[in-house]
Nucleic acid binder design. Structure first.
Length: 264
DNA sequence: TTCCATGTTCCGCA
DNA sequence: TTGCGGAACATGGA
């Protein structure tokens, strides 16, 4: 589930496995995932280079390939992930892009659906500006007042507003449900109608939920027992009050929430 | 078989 | 003009 916590784990994974290793070759197995760069150019730029550092903004992962000048950008769509391995019998099932290092290991980008994206950008900052992405949800310089201002100025349902990457980057359908549950806020309330107390809770719970998920390595089996995510299915029960969880479509996505803990 | 799914983008309407 | 809601996209599992 590649939302902010998942992509943060991918960043840690890429950092611990794939930095400072010479790239021997690059294979593009599904050219549809390339965005704004040709297969030929991508290979030419990566071959002989190495990943020098990794960064993340929202759901995007960046790997530095030429000091301060060029970065590989990866987006994982709904189903993407990375796998570092040795030996071709261990290739993941829907490999779209493969980097092979001179040490014999490979880094694969797997995406069952092809909704992800791979490109080359000169700097993450310019990319973020071009895509009009909002501040990263875990940016330590994102202060409560700026956060509150963003949500006071939008009229959409708060769930939709949280998922809008132009407002805050990194939150998707799953984690927006969790953040609203932990905040005790109904997902259909209009963003601009939230009171100051609710905005305060939303801000602090957003940080708490995302940080907790990263600490749990984005693995729902390790989430705090108060999280609603593991109960986010047809016959789920609220982990706090045992009320039946409700399901409804908001802004075109399925929302799960507790009608008792999250009053309108 | 049909519906639904963690992603973003595009279109039409207010 | 801008923002919002819904459809579209690709693929496979329930």
């Amino acid at each position: 589930m590649p939302e902010l916590p998942d992509v943060e784990i991918f960043k840690q994974y890429l950092t611990s496995t794939s930095l400072h290793k010479e790239i021997r070759s690059v294979e593009v197995l599904t050219s549809e995932v390339l965005e704004g760069v040709s297969d030929r150019k991508l290979k030419a730029r990566l071959k002989g280079a190495e990943f020098m550092s990794a960064r993340r903004h929202g759901k995007y992962l960046f790997a530095e390939t030429a000091e301060g000048k060029e970065w590989l950008v990866l987006h994982f769509g709904m189903t993407g992930f990375l796998k570092y391995f040795k030996g071709h019998d261990k290739d993941p099932p829907h490999e779209r892009f493969l980097v092979s290092f001179t040490n014999g290991f490979h880094l694969a980008y797997d995406s069952q659906r092809k909704l992800g994206e791979i490109g080359l950008v000169d700097t993450p900052e310019r990319f973020i500006k071009e895509r009009q992405l909002g501040p990263d949800a875990l940016d330590p310089t994102l202060e409560r007042d700026r956060f509150a201002e963003i949500f006071r100025n939008t009229r959409a349902a708060i769930k939709s507003a949280l998922m809008n990457q132009k407002h805050i980057a990194g939150i998707g359908n799953i984690y927006s449900d969790e953040i609203l549950f932990q905040s005790g806020i109904h997902p259909e309330i209009r963003s601009g109608e939230l009171g100051e107390n609710e905005l305060n809770r939303l801000y602090s719970q957003m940080k708490y939920v995302l940080e907790s998920a990263i600490e749990a390595r984005a693995d729902p089996d390790r989430f705090p027992s108060t999280f609603i995510i593991p109960h986010r299915h047809g016959d789920g029960i609220c982990p706090k009050c045992k009320t039946d969880i409700e399901k409804r479509t908001i802004g075109g996505r399925t929302a799960y929430y507790c009608p008792h803990c999250q009053k309108r």
